[in-house]
Simulated scan of single mutants.
Amino acid sequence: MSNTPEVDRGPLVTPVRVVIALCLVAPFVAMLWVGSFSKTDPTLIGIPFFYWYQMLWVLISTALTMTAYQLWQRDQRARASQQGGASK
């Protein structure tokens, strides 16, 4: 038995955390599904699809990672305020 009180942290899987996971998993799925982009057409300014598709995902991955980070920060602040409000 420990002397620390039980703290209700809420559910571990929330809709926000599912969105965060999807934001982080989407680039991996897109890049591992090689059959979807292993072609040369359509070209963009003379660059084959294979290359510009991957470079586009660099930008998309950055945006998704930033979104996931912002959502995580918001989730952590909400949990901290719930715990602080419950104990006061």
Rank of each mutant, 00 (worst) to 15 (best):
T62R: 11
T65W: 06
S2G: 15
Q54T: 06
D41G: 06
L56R: 13
L71A: 00
P5K: 07
A63W: 09
T4P: 06
S2T: 15
P27C: 01
S61H: 09
S36Q: 13
I47P: 08
P48E: 10
D41H: 08
V34Y: 11
V25S: 06
R79C: 11
L12P: 03
M31L: 10
A63F: 14
G46D: 03
P11S: 15
Q70Y: 09
I60H: 01
Y51S: 14
G46Y: 01
L22G: 02
R77Y: 05
Y69N: 08
V34W: 13
T67F: 00
S87M: 03
A78V: 11
A30F: 12
I60F: 04
F50R: 14
Y69A: 15
S81I: 02
W52N: 09
T4Y: 13
A68T: 02
P27S: 01
S38N: 15
W57R: 09
L64K: 10
G46Q: 04
S38M: 10
M66A: 15
L44S: 08
W52E: 03
L22S: 05
W52G: 06
A86E: 10
L22I: 10
A86G: 11
T4W: 14
M1Y: 10
T67R: 01
Y51G: 05
T65V: 08
V58Q: 10
D41T: 09
P42A: 04
C23T: 02
N3M: 06
M55C: 10
A26V: 08
D8G: 12
V16G: 07
K39A: 15
T65N: 07
A21W: 12
S38V: 01
A63T: 13
L71E: 00
F28Q: 03
L22F: 09
L12T: 07
N3F: 03
Q83F: 00
L71V: 01
D8R: 15
R17A: 00
T4N: 14
L32G: 03
S81Q: 08
W72N: 12
I60Q: 09
A21D: 11
S38P: 05
Q82F: 02
D41E: 14
R9C: 14
P11K: 15
R79Q: 11
R9K: 15
R17N: 06
D41N: 10
Q76P: 04
T40G: 01
R9G: 13
R77H: 11
Q76I: 02
A86T: 10
V29A: 10
A80E: 04
I20S: 07
S61F: 05
C23R: 02
V18R: 08
Q73F: 04
L71D: 00
M55D: 14
I47F: 08
L24W: 02
S2Y: 13
W52A: 01
Y69I: 10
A21C: 07
V19D: 01
L24S: 02
V7E: 10
W57M: 06
G35F: 02
Q73D: 05
V7H: 07
L24T: 05
S38Y: 11
V29K: 06
P11W: 15
I45C: 04
E6M: 14
T67H: 01
G84H: 09
A78E: 11
R17M: 13
R17D: 04
P15K: 12
G46T: 00
L59R: 03
D8Q: 14
W57Y: 08
R77F: 05
Q82M: 10
G85K: 04
A26Q: 05
V25R: 08
F49K: 11
